[in-house]
Structure formats: C-alpha cells, structure tokens
Computed example of a mutant assay.
Amino acid sequence: MDRMPSWVRQHLAALRALLVLTVITGIIYPLLATGVAQALFNDNANGSLVQKDGKTVGSALIGQSFTDADGNPVRTYFQSRPSAAGDGYDPTSTAASNLGPEDVIDTLPNPGGADEAAKEGKQSLLTQVCARSKAVGELEGVSGARPYCTTDGVGAVLKVFPDRAVSVNQACPATPFIATYEGLKVGCAQPGQDYAAGKTVPIRGNVTTVQVPADAVTASGSGLDPHVSVAYAELQAPRVAKERGLSLEQVKALIDEHTSGRALGFMGEPAVNVLELNLALDGA
C-alpha cells in the first residue's frame, strides 16, 4: 500500500495536536482551576456575593447606587461614590470617563441644535465635579464650595477676548459669577455660540476649605469601586443617624467595623464598604 502523501500526514498531525491541546486547555485546565478556586477561595470565586434574608443583594467587590426611582439619594443610606460605568456600576461597561483636568468647558444645551447631542449638551469634568459637590453639600448640610466652581455648581471658567469676557459654563440669562475681569465686562454664554477663539481662564475663587471629599465627586478608574473614604463616610454619618433615629456614636461605630485598612499595611488608604455598612445599619 502506498504511503500517505506528506501533506496529508502533516494535516493529521496538526489535527491530533489541536484535539489534544483543546482537551488540555479547554476542558482539563478550566475544570482544575475551577475546582481549586471552589475548594480554596469559594466566596471570592463566586463573586463575593452578599446575602440578606436568603437573597443576593449585591457583591462586596462591586459598588451600587442607593437612590430612589427618580435617582435621588435615599437619605437613610450611606451613598456610594459616582460611577462612569454604563448607567452606574455596570460590570459589563466598566470604565472611567477618560476626562482630564483640562476638560473645563461645557457644551451648553442648545434647543436649536442639529442633533440630539447638541440639544442635550455635555458637561465638562470640572462642571460634573462642581455639580456633585454642590449636591453633596446640600444633602449633608455642609458647604459644597470648591476652587474653580461657581455657587450655582458649574465650572468657573472665562473665555477672554480683547473687548469682553464670557462665563462659558453659565448659559444666559444666568448672572455671571464675576461682573468684570481685568477691566472687561463678563457676560453669560449664548448656547450654540463658538467661543473657541477666546483665551481660556479658570478662576480659582476664594475657597480655602473644601468640606466635600474628592471621592464624593469623582468616579473610580473602574467605575465599580464599592468603597468610600473614611472622610466621606463620616461626612454622611450625621444625616444617616438622624434619619434612622440612631446616635451618632452608634453610626460611627458601624463605620469603624466596616473599615478595611491599607493593603499589605502600607498601600492606599483605609476604606469603607458601603453595601456592607448599609446592611449593618438595616440590622442595627
């Protein structure tokens, strides 16, 4: 019997290698890795799910919002930090906003815009931070003032021209946050106008003390961070204690119980798991 052609033998060898590697890497290895994970790290391997009354209410590794149907904070709960992942804490859309410190100029809503994006406008990172800080300050009964923010919660930024200045993040008929700049009258911004030719000048203002922590107004890199800083948790404690009829000492004790230390004892900062803290409050 004639020997098989060399090209046939090569294809058969390649097919055998494919089958063997498929069994090893596609069946044996995944089963082995899954078995070891389930035996040694059962809770973590299953997503660190958190149970309440026999029902899964979330994961200790993924944050979630504690808001009502209209998106307003539920006052009896500690609030999480903002999230840029999808509509908020979406594991399938984990991401940051990718906006940087130079993103300070809004695209103002323009009802006469050519498309939906132009009609809705777009907030800069600075205005997002200012608006969140103002909202958190109002919720917690403290000042939400920050440098480079106006009192109405937008970025304090001017576009300066030879004969005038424009507060580009304050749409007319708003009153500009300052009346004049270096002898130039400051006006409000007209939606749809192009102010690109002007010089961009952020105005710091006279804010010396910031009471709203940074993690209350900025999202994490993944958008899934389940923790807040101890400072943000303590800022919320008086509100939660009042709404639940608990003493401030009781609430602070629960914060301490659900505060994790620095990784390996020296990396990062202590942090509070919001979901676990809120569940502890429900059981208090």
Rank of each mutant, 00 (worst) to 15 (best):
N72I: 01
T92R: 12
G58S: 07
V57L: 14
V104K: 05
V50I: 14
S48E: 08
A95E: 09
D53W: 12
T107Q: 15
P73R: 03
P82T: 04
G71V: 05
G54W: 12
G47A: 10
G100D: 15
N46F: 07
Y77D: 11
L49D: 12
A96F: 09
V104P: 01
A85L: 05
A45S: 15
T56G: 03
S80M: 08
D103R: 00
I105Y: 10
R75Q: 13
P91F: 03
R75D: 09
N98C: 00
S97H: 06
S83Y: 10
D103T: 00
P82I: 01
T92I: 04
P73N: 08
I62P: 03
D103P: 03
N46Y: 06
V104Q: 10
G86E: 13
D70G: 08
Y77E: 10
Y77H: 09
L99D: 11
G100S: 12
A85D: 06
I105C: 02
S80P: 10
R75H: 11
G86I: 07
F78N: 02
D68A: 04
K52V: 14
D87K: 15
F66G: 06
T56F: 05
G54H: 12
N44M: 13
D103Y: 01
D90E: 15
N46L: 13
A85Q: 04
A95M: 10
F78M: 06
R75F: 05
G63I: 02
S93V: 03
P101E: 14
V104C: 05
N72R: 05
D70Y: 08
D87C: 03
D90G: 05
T76C: 06
S83A: 09
S93L: 14
N44E: 15
R81I: 00
A96T: 08
L61S: 15
A60C: 12
A85T: 05
R81Y: 06
V104S: 02
A95H: 10
